[in-house]
Design a protein around this nucleic acid. Structure first.
Lengths: 246, 246
DNA sequence: GAGTGGTCTAGACCACGGC
DNA sequence: CCGTGGTCTAGACCACTCT
């Protein structure tokens, strides 16, 4: 199905990227563009809303919208899995499971995954690579109901998110991420080829299905220089993307 | 002016926080709520859109919306300054300028701030505190046109963002943040009271006015344990908030 | 098949910016 | 003051979920 507002958003995205509307310049008014595209003002506002949430444009009541950034953007609003994100940036994602075992959920884990204490969970230690270089180490805990599907995946599975959807129709659509810095432990140092005690970016995240059921909770440690997290925010909206360093 | 959709969003936020709609439960349909609040479906969808961008609820075509989180949320979509954010969390923000000097912009700085190479910029080294404890060290470069206003601020100015607006009508409304981890240097270690080489969360950011003019670019280094960055994201939208550690 | 959210229309009025 | 974006309405059709 054709979504007019997505189509228009993409056209504007391209125009901004190509320099038709440079940073700081004003965009045509809603009415002008609505007329030009043969749609109602509502549909056009939907397209503008997308670009706004992507941080490409800003708006103030009474004045025309202005261009804030021309970054090519790809698919901003998407929650990208590591593999999807890597490929979008032209890099080759890889992964390898180092350890995988079932255990009983601790009280904290049960609370985070909405399980009963003592329920089964699956611990997975996985290293992720970019173009063959180790980039991050994941310590993931999957809820028991998803464990079987995860265990069926090959050890070098490239995209867990994708595979879990393809194989078991488990869609991970929402996430909460906590970012801070931490010193590399012994395991971190060995698997990421850094010195013990060197700085790592830690992301603790919980991912849920569209109806809010937690699938996994994870402690991911990123090697500096391999990945940079980028956040664009404004008074109106705040998307997050992962990027490679400049 | 009364914004119906904001009012309704707030009512729903409260209902979710109070447990009327627990995590994982379904919300009433758009038509039901529109009727109940005496508004059109469009207005109601606007309210739902706000909650969605706050990560509180999720939606799938064909099924009712579900509650993803009950976190009280405060003002998610706002881009909060350090001081505003700290106060919202019930903590006392502080700040102290350690060094301030004018210089000529390097080529990189000129590009980032949209200045001509050789234009004047203002370098400021500032330590920020939470409840009196050093939490981060800021190395900020202000564009020349904003320098005079910044220099007029007291050394212990609590909120630079607020003061710049009050004093010079400079509104910092958009920002781009790059997050990674870095080892503490000599200055970092001294001012943040950590060991040299210990991990810090680095945020490199550029802030602009609503029309896209860059005001400042900064290298901020956060002491671990003082601040955690939290990102909620979904297929639909991605807000960012800073939080204190759990 | 009934109900739901996603899209779209063609109007209207208001608050704000800038001339 | 006019043009702009922000809000709101009352309809309509479609894609999808669930039973």
């Amino acid at each position: 199905m054709i979504r007019r507002h997505q189509q228009i958003a993409e056209e504007l995205r391209v125009a901004i990227a190509e320099g038709t509307y440079p940073v700081g310049s004003e965009l045509p008014s809603e009415s002008e563009l609505a007329l030009a595209h043969g749609v109602s003002r509502g549909t056009l506002r939907q397209a503008f809303g997308t670009l706004q949430s992507e941080g490409l444009i800003g708006s103030r009541q009474g004045a025309r919208r202005t261009v804030l950034s021309t970054t090519p953007s790809q698919s901003f609003t998407e929650l990208r899995s590591f593999a999807q994100w890597a490929r979008a940036g032209g890099r080759t994602p890889g992964g390898l499971v180092l350890r995988s075992r079932r255990a009983k959920a601790t009280e904290a884990q049960a609370a985070q995954l909405h399980l009963a204490p003592g329920d089964t969970v699956l611990h997975v230690l996985r290293v992720r690579t970019l173009d063959g270089e180790p980039a991050l180490l994941e310590r993931t805990v999957y809820a028991g109901w998803a464990a079987a599907a995860v265990e069926r995946l090959p050890d070098d599975c490239e995209s867990v998110t994708q595979s879990l959807y393809d194989e078991a129709r488990v869609l991970m659509s929402h996430g909460e991420h906590h970012l801070d810095a931490i010193a590399a432990g012994t395991t971190d140092a060995r698997e990421l080829a850094v010195r013990r005690g060197s700085p790592l970016l830690r992301v603790r995240r919980t991912t849920t299905t569209p109806d809010g059921r937690p699938v996994e909770t994870s402690d991911d440690r990123y090697k500096p220089g391999s990945v940079v997290f980028t956040v664009r925010n404004s008074v109106q909206a705040n998307p997050l993307v992962r990027t490679t360093p400049d």
